[in-house]
């Protein structure tokens, strides 16, 4: 296991990866899944067409450290904040990280609405891992 992927207490991070809504572009999600695996992370891969409810359900049962969402359609301003709220309403303290094609002008809005980090296309493994590590509450 690489140091980067170890949670603060030396155990591997467990991260949920999913896409919300109908959009089927999963190339980025799959690349990130492998990236994280190769950095020592345990990826709970939910894939396409998840809802906030199915992700919360998995996050509780899997005791996930973070939720990663990939977004390539116009819905990010609706769907990502909704996920953040669902996490809060479930009483969970799990960061929501968004990756994908997000216009610069929307990034601030997403962060204001509680998204822990936004990763653009071309983010390196180190950047992805750092974003997760910095977001996970110690």
């Amino acid at each position: 296991m690489t140091d980067a992927a170890a949670a603060t207490d030396g155990e591997p991070l467990r991260v949920i990866l999913a896409k919300l809504g109908l959009d089927g572009h999963d190339r980025g999600l799959k690349v990130v899944a492998r990236m994280l695996r190769d950095a020592g992370v345990e990826v709970i891969y939910l894939g396409l067409r998840q809802t906030a409810a199915t992700i919360i359900n998995a996050a509780e049962q899997e005791d996930a450290d973070a939720i990663g969402l990939s977004m390539h359609n116009a819905g990010h301003l609706t769907l990502a904040p909704r996920m953040v709220n669902a996490v809060k309403e479930a009483g969970l303290d799990i960061p929501v990280i968004v990756g994908g094609i997000i216009p610069d002008e929307d990034i601030t809005e997403l962060l204001d609405k509680g998204v822990a980090a936004v990763l653009g296309p071309g983010a390196s493994t180190d950047e992805v891992i750092a974003a997760i590590r910095d977001s996970v509450p110690s």
Partner: peptide, 22 residues
Amino acid sequence: DMPTLMGRDSDSEWAEGEVGHC
């Protein structure tokens, strides 16, 4: 648009935010 491509009507919960987009 994406809901039409996926066989969903515009009033489906899955369609929210996607109607008429692409």
